[in-house]
C-alpha cells in the first residue's frame, strides 16, 4: 500500500492544502481571520484556467494569483479599514467569488461549470534521481508548482522568524497597540498579510485547475480552503506544521481513493477529508496557540 506512487499521489493532493495553509499563516499572524480563502481559491481556479486557455499556463498562473489577491483586497478593505466582522466578510467573499466565477464562466465559455481543457506547465524530471526505481514516481514528470510549494515552507519560516517584516507582521497579530506604539504601520502589515494569503490561495487554485486537472470544474475546491485553515490550526500557525498537516490530508485522501470497494459506498470515501478535519480540530485545537489578537479589529487611536 505504501508505494512511491501512493506517496506521489498524496503529495499531489496535499499541495493545494499546503499552499493555502501557508497563505493563511500570513493572514492570521497579522491578526486577520481569512474564511474567504475558499472563494479566493475558486477565483484562482477559474481565472487561472480561463487565462491559460487564451494565453498559456504562465499567464494563467499570474492571473490566478492576481485574482486571489483582488478578492483578498476586498476582504482587507472591509475587515481592516472598516473593521467589519472578519468572518462575515469572509463568508461574503466566498459567495461573491462563487457568483462572479459562474457569471464569468457562462459569459466567456457559455458553460456554467467547466472551462475547456488547458495546457499545463512543462513537467520537471530530476535527472539523477529519476533513475532510481523506487523514487521514479516522486521525481519524474512533476509539476514545478509542487517544488514551489515545498520551497514556500522554509521561505515562510525564514520570513516569519528572521526578517523585520515577519517580526512586524507577528507583532501586529499579537499586540497591535504595542506594535503601533513602536512605530509599526499596523494597517499596512495587516493588508500585506491578507493580500499574501489571497495571492497564495489564488496560486493554489491555479495549481488545481491548470496543473492537477488541466481544466476548471465547478466545485473542484470542495472546501479545501477551509481544510487548509484547519491544517494551519493543526500546524500551530507554523509553516512546517502546516506542511505536515497538509500531507496528512493528502495522504488520507490518496488512501481513501485507493480503497474504493463494493463494501464502502463512494460517498463515505469522499467524506474522509471533512471528517478528518473535524476529528483533527477536536483533538488538537486546545493544544495549539493562536495569535493573541487574531479576529479582533484594530482601531487606530482607540486607546487615546
Amino acid at each position: 500500500m505504501l508505494s512511491a506512487e501512493m506517496l506521489a499521489s498524496a503529495i499531489r493532493l496535499a499541495v493545494p492544502v499546503i499552499i493555502t495553509a501557508v497563505g493563511a499563516i500570513y493572514s492570521e499572524r497579522s491578526g486577520v481571520i481569512n474564511i474567504g480563502l475558499e472563494g479566493m481559491m475558486i477565483a484562482g481556479c477559474f481565472t487561472g484556467a480561463a487565462v491559460a486557455f487564451y494565453a498559456g499556463p504562465y499567464a494563467g498562473i499570474l492571473a490566478a494569483v492576481a485574482a486571489g489577491a483582488f478578492f483578498a483586497l476586498i476582504h482587507a478593505v472591509a475587515s481592516v479599514h472598516f473593521r467589519v466582522d472578519q468572518i462575515v466578510s469572509g463568508v461574503a467573499i466566498n459567495i461573491l467569488a462563487y457568483g462572479v466565477v459562474r457569471f464569468s464562466s457562462l459569459s466567456i465559455f457559455k458553460m456554467a461549470t467547466t472551462t475547456p481543457h488547458v495546457d499545463c506547465l512543462p513537467k520537471v524530471t530530476i535527472p539523477g534521481l529519476a533513475a532510481v526505481p523506487w523514487l521514479e514516481p516522486l521525481v519524474s514528470k512533476v509539476s514545478p508548482l509542487i517544488f514551489l510549494a515545498f520551497l514556500l515552507i522554509p521561505f515562510t519560516a525564514w520570513v516569519m522568524n528572521r526578517t523585520v517584516f515577519g517580526l512586524r507582521l507577528r507583532s501586529v497579530g499579537e499586540h497591535p497597540l504595542a506594535a503601533e506604539t513602536l512605530g509599526v504601520n499596523v494597517y499596512l502589515m495587516k493588508y500585506c498579510g491578507v493580500l499574501i494569503s489571497g495571492a497564495l490561495a489564488g496560486l493554489s487554485g491555479a495549481y488545481l485547475s491548470i496543473e492537477h486537472t488541466q481544466m476548471y470544474v465547478e466545485g473542484m475546491t470542495q472546501g479545501l480552503g477551509f481544510i487548509a485553515l484547519a491544517a494551519m490550526i493543526f500546524g500551530n500557525w507554523m509553516p512546517l506544521g502546516a506542511m505536515w498537516a497538509g500531507l496528512l490530508f493528502g495522504f488520507a485522501q490518496a488512501l481513501s481513493l485507493r480503497v474504493v470497494t463494493e463494501a464502502v459506498p463512494y460517498q463515505f470515501i469522499k467524506m474522509v477529508p471533512y471528517i478528518l478535519t473535524i476529528v483533527v480540530l477536536a483533538g488538537f485545537v486546545r493544544r495549539s496557540r493562536a495569535p493573541a489578537a487574531v479576529g479582533v479589529p484594530y482601531e487606530r487611536g482607540e486607546a487615546a
Partner: peptide
C-alpha cells in the same frame, strides 16, 4: 446569467456590514 443574483447577494452582505 442568473448568477447576477449570487453576486448581488455577496455584495449586499459586504456593503451592509460596512454601512453599519
Amino acid at each position: 446569467p442568473m448568477e447576477t443574483y449570487v453576486i448581488l447577494q455577496g455584495l449586499i452582505i459586504l456593503t451592509i456590514v460596512v454601512f453599519w
